[in-house]
Structure formats: structure tokens, C-alpha cells
Computed example of a mutant assay.
Amino acid sequence: MPLSPMTYPDGHVGWRAHDHAAVRAVLADRRFSIRPDLMHNPFGPGSPGDAPPAPPGAFTDMDAPDHTRYRSRLTGQFTVRRMRLLAERLEEITAAQLDELEAAGSPADLVQHFASPVPALMICELLGVPYERRADFHQDAMTMVSASGLAEEAEAMYAAFGRLQVFMLEMVAAKRAEPTDDLLSDLVNVDSDLTDDELATMGMALLGGGLDTTTNMLSLGTLELLREPARVEAMLANPDAAVEELLRYISLTPATARTALEDVEVEGVLVHKGDTVLIELGSANRDPARYADPDVLDLAKGASGHVAFGHGIHQCIGQHLARIELKIAFPGLFSRFPKLRLAVPEDELPHRPSLVIRGLERMPVAWD
């Protein structure tokens, strides 16, 4: 059955979509809403109306036409020219962070010295964060996305979020006064109908979407590569295919959700208006009807059509940049450290306590 009934934490009887065809069908159908304020929360307590409506600029939590209004401004910013320039800069950043990892000495934490700073510095390049502010920006960004459910960590997260909001507003004002060659400057000076608050919120959305995900993909991807030497060889031989297969296999964001705005039939199943559907991206990426031997990681074959970046109008807008980061960072890491290995038993690696995005808090590695 492509959709299965599911009882949510608030008692709502909704659905879960788990095969590849059903997942893509729901994600592509605009009769399903992404708005949190309309949703029964599949990950914890929360009924429609408990979450506030998305603030202006928070396009990732909006349906069309509001979503379209904001996202269309960003689509044109991820140009071939900008991606090429960012790729050149990424090679420099990767080399510098590998120098830092080596200088830290074996063993060292791969997350601290490589997996976290590489995407953070790339977000700084994309948004045009001044060099003198990047250390504080990185620290607050990692605090914002890495906090667990502990009260003291939640307090630190909200404080970091507040500082980043203020900083982003300062950045918008600075780019309006003196534009530079970056995405935020283009948004500020080309789209004059957007308010400073809207622009700052869009910047925050790009930060949240591009930092934590790539950090965790680098650490979890490295973990998978370290399990078999042949996997490293496959990555170095064909990074394009290897990265796509890692994205499919790991499925960093295992699930998302949508709510039906009207009665909708999906793969022969009737979903009633107001029903929430848990969309299991990880299950879709291991659907045997779509992928042969789906539980086997075969880096040489690649993986077309996976939904690791979602599907439909909300498909990750920064997916091309994420791919560039992974295709440069993984080969760079293993070319520099061909004898890289875990410095602790795998079962001692601290995993993040999150149902939304998988990741590692630390990853001690060693080399000869």
C-alpha cells in the first residue's frame, strides 16, 4: 500500500507515504501544504494552529503564491558563474581546513576542524559576510542548529538565533549602502520591493538550509567511506556518482510532512482535507521498486531520481552548491589523508538527538 494510516502524537489519524512514487506524488502536488500552522506534527506534540504562521521572508514554510514570490528571487542567484566562482573558493577553503586538521594533530575531531567550518565558510562567501565577523557568525550559526532539547542548550540556541537575526539585518543595511559581489547584495539591490526584515529572514533560511545539512553529510559520508577501503577508491575514481549514491543511501533528512488542503487521491488512496502525511524520504530512497539492492551502498553506480533534496516546488534551492561542496571536500579529504581512520570505536561516536536531521556531534579521526 503506497500510503499507510498513522496515528500522530496528538491523536490525529493521518498517513505515511513511504514508497518512491507516493513520496514524489505528494511532494509534487500543490494541493498539499507545507505550512506548520496547518499541520499535525508527526515528530512530537502539536496540532493545527499551535505553530504560528511563517513570518515574511520565511519562504521554506510557505505555499504558493507567497513561496513563489520569495523563491523566484533566489533561483536566479544560483547562476553557473556564481557556482563556478564558489567552486574555486571552495577548493581554497577545503585545502585550508585540511591544513588546520593536520595542524591539530592525530587524533582530531573531523566535525570541528573540517565538516563544520567548510560549509560555514561557504555560506559566508555566498552571503558576503565580512571576514572579521566570520568566527562569531560561525559560532552562533552552529549553536543555533546544533542545540538538543536540554533547557540550557535551548536557551543558548535562542540567544544565538537572536544575535544572528540582528547581524543579518545589519548585513542587509550594509549591502544596501555598499554592495559587494555576493547573493545578499544582489537581493538587496535588485529587489527593492522586499523589506529589510524579509531579506534578513531569507538570509536566515539560506543559513539554516545550507550549514547543518552539509556539515552532517560530510561527517556521516566520511563514516560510510571509512567502513570499506574500496569505497574511498570509488569516491576518488568518480566523485559525481559516489556523492549521488551517498545522498540516496544516507538520506540525511529522513522525513518531512504535508497537509492536504482538499480531498486528494494519491496512488489510489483518498487523503481527506486536513489530513497530514508523513513523507518518509529515507524509505523512498530505499524503495526496491525504484532501486535494485537498495540497502547496499554501491558508490560506482550512482543514484538517479533520489529525493534526498526533496521534490517539487520545495526541492532544496541550494542543492547544486551542496553537490559541489561534497564533490570537492570528500576527494580532498582522502587525497590528503589516505590512511584516515576512526580514533574511537564506532559505537562511541555521539549522534545528535534529532528526529529531523541526522548527524554526529563529534567524530575523532586519526591518520599516520
Rank of each mutant, 00 (worst) to 15 (best):
G14R: 02
D29P: 12
H351V: 00
S192A: 14
A95T: 13
M144N: 10
R31S: 03
H20N: 13
A237S: 08
A237N: 12
L297I: 08
I34F: 11
P229G: 10
V243A: 08
Y158N: 01
G57C: 13
T276R: 07
E280V: 00
V269D: 08
R84F: 01
F161L: 13
V111G: 04
D136R: 05
R35K: 11
A292T: 15
A200Q: 09
G105F: 09
D197K: 09
A54Y: 09
L184W: 13
T201H: 15
A141G: 14
V118G: 06
A141E: 12
V269R: 05
M171K: 02
T79E: 05
E92N: 08
A104E: 13
D63S: 12
D37M: 10
R231M: 00
R323A: 02
V271Y: 00
L299M: 05
S72G: 06
T214L: 03
A237G: 12
L278I: 15
T143L: 15
E228L: 06
L194I: 11
R73P: 10
G208P: 10
D136T: 12
R352E: 03
L90Q: 06
Y70N: 08
I279F: 02
E244H: 09
A54N: 13
Y70K: 07
M144S: 13
E153F: 03
F32N: 04
A141S: 13
G305M: 14
L321V: 14
S251G: 07
R69D: 14
R82P: 03
A87D: 06
S148I: 12
G11R: 05
P179K: 06
A87Y: 00
D347K: 07
A147M: 08
P338L: 06
Q97R: 02
P350M: 01
R69N: 14
R358M: 05
R30C: 06
E152Y: 14
V264Y: 02
E198H: 11
D109V: 14
M363K: 04
D193K: 12
R89F: 01
L187T: 11
P130N: 10
E265W: 01
A160T: 15
A22P: 02
F334S: 02
V172A: 04
R227E: 08
K273R: 04
C316S: 05
L127H: 11
S335P: 04
R133H: 04
P53L: 05
